[in-house]
Design a protein around this nucleic acid. Structure first.
Lengths: 330, 330
DNA sequence: CCAAATTACGTAAGCACTAACGTAATTCCC
DNA sequence: GGGAATTACGTTAGTGCTTACGTAATTTGG
């Protein structure tokens, strides 16, 4: 699904959706058990049950809401007959919240329901429930200790300072070639035999037959790579294009592709093609923008099982357009 | 903090709070980077950037929102000049959403910002970010495959059928004694030497010196335990009270305590005390309700490091009250 | 001891979303 | 081929929360 492909960028949205599902489930259960309470009331009621009487801000601090939220919720609970507000004789500003007897009775009857919820969550989510709880807990802590906004702004400043440059292969970067490609290959597909061979020994399988490898580096970090394989004299395959997931959007892919194409021209190649997968939308868009044209079917004698897209470089077919409509097979 | 003590019961609330934090962080970053977009717009804009033109419900399905939410958001985006709505000539019911050039320009400029967000999240949350993402993903899947409401209702029905009964020690239950106690001891404190000894060999350390052990069982499951240790002739210690976390709220603790007190009286004991920790609020409340009275300080010669509460059984002091106010030290 | 600062709280307005409804346009199907 | 069902969408009202503000009551500090 789409949201999960956005990873960290859509975390807020997905957490909200999960949260709503849990609230809705709880409400449904309460309704069916005739509990007479709503899921949103739970933290307040539960806290007050353990604390007899508490001020608005005390409750707010405990359940991590604003005082207004608690105040408004309290109004609602008073209307529902679950709560009394009474002034604090010791401090006239405060208003003490106290459960009514009706509420106490309702809450004691709720023991088995809460118990079933905990057990039901366990049954339905299994160990994932614990994992989720632990992850949430850990993130809450981390956010408190290392605020996230400055961390992001630091990264942003660092990115702005660093220059993106494309460099050719050198032995010290051999490991990066494998790392960058394995990263996404393993996520989307699985490593095929041919991948393992090429990635493990790029000198032998790429350079020696007359190909080339480029890396994109950003400051000290290597963030992307791309290979030009020489299939037969004058015929080249663009392959092993890969940009670190967390460095997407900086234009590294485009720069790598441009470098590979330049190299192809420099060598006076006659044909440049690539194979890819139709699921990799953004990559395909890039290929088209830089002059590759979709071919019908797959390439005869393709090495890859995952390849269902075959494109050939035709720089004259659609010169440098930024996308005036979907590709027209002319 | 309070919410985490509620575990599964407050999941919705905590996820919402986390979600809000991420949204707020994203908005702050966009603002400071002068991005000109809001966090809530992101999924729609990003989807449209990859898909040129899409109908309201297509977008809604992709970003997992209702069509109204998307429709309203689209209005807002149109007002902000990021979006055009245009009728679909092929189907008059549909309205196609298309990014304006302004939006496309804004989005391409945003690449480095998104990149920094992903990296900043990594820096701030570390591996917890991945864990959270994976847990969310897993829970989304689990909720789809095994709906949670029926699971909870099943548990509820099962609980209603099963009878809670208190049974004395038998060798087959030795393992349960350790399991139930280790569960919460390890969470809140750490296992002390004396715990390990007593829990590992209850016959030797509890029964042989003249004590007793009770178990609460619910159907096939053993959900709680509690021990009566004989310290010296006529002097008993209530100890090792423990109820499985996911079975709290069924009254097992009360029933176990009553059984232990009954046994103490049956044997004609002269003194019954217990040691506990002030953090265990609900347990202390229960002890008071059943006749234990808080003593100042700790008991002389206490075995436990974690004990900071010392209570003695005085059934006549406050007979059977359901809590008319906080304990009055008489 | 009294003005200034702080606090505790309620209220109003706004935001993001939902549920429910109404209405065209399209598809289904006998 | 024409009525019934479905769909796509916009609108409205409502919910749960937030921010912002106003106002007492209390605490602080010279």
């Amino acid at each position: 699904m789409y949201l999960s492909s956005l990873a960290e960028l859509a975390l807020g949205s997905r957490l909200k959706s999960l949260s709503d599902q849990f609230y809705a489930a709880a409400d449904e259960v309460y309704r069916q058990c005739g509990a007479g309470i709503e899921s949103r009331w739970f933290p307040v009621l539960r806290y007050l049950r353990e604390h007899r009487a508490a001020t608005v801000s005390e409750v707010a601090a405990a359940i991590e809401q604003t005082h207004s939220a608690v105040s408004q919720l309290a109004d609602k609970l008073v209307r529902a007959g679950m709560l009394r507000r009474q002034g604090d004789p010791a401090d006239g500003r405060r208003s003490l919240l106290v459960l009514t007897d009706k509420a106490r009775r309702a809450l004691s009857a709720l023991g088995p329901v809460w118990c079933s919820i905990r057990r039901g969550v366990g049954v339905s989510l299994g160990a994932d429930a614990t994992r989720l709880l632990e992850a949430v807990e850990a993130c809450e802590r981390a956010l408190r200790e290392r605020p996230i906004v400055p961390a992001i702004l630091d990264e942003h400043a660092a990115l702005a300072r660093a220059e993106l440059e494309i460099v050719p292969f050198e032995p010290a970067l051999r490991g990066e070639f494998l790392r960058l490609n394995a990263q996404w290959l393993e996520r989307h597909f699985r490593l095929e035999e041919i991948d393992r061979a090429v990635l493990g020994n790029p000198e032998k399988y790429v350079l020696e037959p007359g190909g080339a490898i480029f890396f994109a580096r950003l400051g000290r970090e290597v963030v992307g790579t791309c290979a030009l394989l020489c299939e037969s004299p004058g015929v080249y395959e663009l392959s092993k294009m890969s940009v670190d997931e967390s460095f997407r959007g900086l234009g590294a892919g485009r720069r790598l592709l441009e470098a590979a194409i330049a190299e192809f021209r420099r060598r006076g190649g006659t044909e440049l093609f690539l194979e890819s997968n139709s699921a990799l939308k953004p990559a395909l868009q890039l290929y088209e923008q830089l002059g590759f044209v979709m071919q019908p079917g797959v390439r005869a004698g393709s090495h890859y099982q995952r390849a269902d897209v075959y494109m050939v470089y035709r720089p004259d077919a659609a010169p440098g357009r930024r996308g005036k409509g979907p590709r027209k097979p002319r």
